[in-house]
Design a protein around this nucleic acid. Structure first.
Length: 270
DNA sequence: ATAATAACCTGAGGGC
DNA sequence: TGCCCTCAGGTTATTA
């Protein structure tokens, strides 16, 4: 499911329900996720959630003793329910709150993770090597230009590399490259500064618009309040292989890059 | 050291 | 209906 916009929507969506509440206890039905859910979480009782943050595609729930780190993987979601709501098949973790509600982690494919650290979460090994946030100042054309020369990969691979910039997954990589009129197959080493500028702008624009539309719901994704994302209506290439390019009417091509489906317009994207 | 591939899972959909 | 195949929003570990 989730690229940066969906994780951001999830973070925003749990804010009112969860911030300042106490976690009474954590119920783990299925500890076997991407990594085992740490036992330390089972010991957490009556802890106050003081802060909710997103870093890349990770959600950070801060409590006094440490930080709960959540990743939604491919099919994960977090939703808020009344605590009497019966659990369903893939509801793996419940954060039972002090006001009769619960925050429920659901993930059919179990590629996501619920982890725990008592250190600075930004130093946690999964977070410590991440690149800049796409909306931060340091993600700029000069920065991307430098990375483009350090690596010998396609543009699609470059912008999906979380060391280069975080938050861009398969859908938004396709969309950003189309918006920037750059071929996903181009080698990063061939990028000009001006093209880097365009790519930075379009990555930011696409992600921003997706957040405004509540993210993209393909199948699993729902906001914590149960709402779908509507950016699917704005997708210009992803999922449109064989259909006409909305810019030039040529049929869109579909190829695989790094085993991920890649859709683009051979005429518009150079 | 860098880049391709395999691996982790479940479920949906298509072809036969 | 059922079996087999492919594909799906991610990322790490392993191999080349």
């Amino acid at each position: 499911m989730p690229e940066l916009p969906e994780v951001e929507i999830t973070c925003q969506g749990i804010q009112t329900a969860v911030l300042g509440r106490k976690i009474r206890k954590i119920l783990v039905r299925q500890p076997q996720l991407r990594w085992p859910v740490p036992d330390a979480l089972l010991q957490l009782k009556n802890v106050n959630i003081s802060d909710i943050n997103r870093r890349a595609k990770y959600i950070l729930l801060n409590v006094q003793q440490g930080t709960i780190i959540i990743h939604l993987g491919m099919s994960g979601r977090l939703c808020v329910f009344d605590q009497t709501t019966p659990n369903q098949k893939h509801d793996h973790v419940d954060f039972i709150l002090d006001n009769g509600t619960l925050l429920r982690y659901t993930d059919p494919r179990r590629f996501g993770a619920v982890l725990w650290t008592t250190e600075d979460p930004l130093n946690y090994h999964l977070l410590s090597n991440l690149g800049p946030e796409p909306f931060s100042e340091c993600f700029n054309s000069q920065y991307l230009f430098e990375w483009s020369k350090r690596k010998n990969v396609t543009l699609k691979q470059l912008i999906m590399d979380q060391q280069v910039v975080v938050g861009v997954g398969n859908i938004y990589a396709n969309e950003a490259l189309f918006a920037a009129k750059l071929s996903p197959l181009r080698l990063s080493t061939s990028l000009t500064k001006k093209e880097c500028q365009q790519l930075v702008i379009m990555i930011q624009k696409i992600l921003q618009q997706a957040i405004l539309k509540g993210g993209t719901t393909l199948r699993d994704f729902l906001s914590p309040t149960g709402k779908q994302g509507y950016f699917i209506q704005e997708l210009l290439v992803y999922g449109r292989e064989g259909e006409d390019c909305l810019c030039c009417k040529e049929p869109l091509q579909s190829i695989r890059i790094n085993q991920r489906s890649t859709v683009f317009c051979n005429a518009c994207q150079k």
